Amino acid sequence: MTLIALDDICFAYPGQAPVLNGANLRLEAGQRLSLTGPNGAGKSTLLRITLGLQRPSSGAVTVFGKPRQAEADFHEVRRHIGLVFQDPDDQLFCPTVAEDIAFGPLNLGKTRDEALAIVDRVLGDLNLMHLKERTTHKLSGGEKRLITLATVLAMEPQALLLDEPTNALDTKNEARLLEILQSLPQAILLVSHSPAFRDALAPDRLELRDGKLVAV
């Protein structure tokens, strides 16, 4: 089953040359795929286009078999595809870890008790229960990264989009993150500057060259 299909995607920031110029991508259920290319090639832009956070100037976005164009089309997409941002501080905004993780499930209509049960389950699965009552902004960079992943997993997504997930991680936390991600069933679309991390998690690779995706 094809979860994400991007066809002939073109995109340019105002006043700049096109970043994407006919990019095509398929992500199948359970697949792990890396996007590579130099800084500024458009990798993060592609992730954002997949979720409707940016709109292509032309081309088609199809997710879960349905074309996605209007803002309303992407509401379902964002419920079922989780994006882990480059900077955890862009994603964590509640006073405590438990509140941050419960935020998504509560927005999906879960009761408070149901949301708290999800918090406990996700933190237990990730062996992070000791962080449950911590103040979010006082976490270390590595802890923030892992809690950001927990907030996304609480939504029970079908796929994960990971934008430089090892940024600011020490060796120990990078190994822990890799162990967690390798154990997950979700399809993964990975942007990472670390060849070792890419090879271990998502060895299938597409490279952005001149605005197009090329198998390498």
Rank of each mutant, 00 (worst) to 15 (best):
T2W: 08
L3C: 00
I4L: 08
D8C: 12
C10Q: 13
Y13N: 02
P14D: 13
P18H: 00
L20I: 01
N21D: 14
N21K: 05
G22H: 03
G22E: 02
A23T: 00
R26T: 13
E28Y: 11
L33N: 11
L35C: 14
T36K: 11
P38N: 02
N39A: 13
N39T: 12
A41K: 00
L47Y: 02
R48H: 01
R48I: 00
T50K: 02
R55T: 09
S57F: 01
A60P: 01
V61L: 03
K66L: 00
D73H: 05
F74W: 13
E76P: 11
V77C: 09
L83E: 11
D89W: 14
D90K: 09
V97Q: 01
E99A: 14
F103N: 15
L106E: 09
L108H: 08
R112M: 15
D113L: 06
D113V: 06
E114P: 03
A115K: 08
L116S: 02
L116C: 03
A117I: 13
R121S: 05
V122Q: 00
L123F: 12
H130F: 04
K132W: 05
R134W: 04
T135D: 04
T135M: 01
L139C: 11
L139S: 05
S140C: 07
S140K: 06
G141Q: 08
E143S: 05
E143M: 15
K144C: 07
R145A: 07
L146W: 11
A150D: 02
V152M: 05
M155S: 12
P157A: 06
Q158M: 06
L161V: 08
L162D: 05
D163C: 06
P165G: 13
T171E: 13
K172M: 12
K172A: 10
E174W: 10
L178N: 01
L181M: 14
Q182G: 10
P185A: 10
I188N: 02
L189D: 09
L190Y: 11
P195L: 12
P195D: 11
F197C: 06
A200N: 14
L201F: 08
P203Q: 15
L208M: 13
R209T: 10
D210V: 08
G211W: 00
V214N: 04
V216N: 09
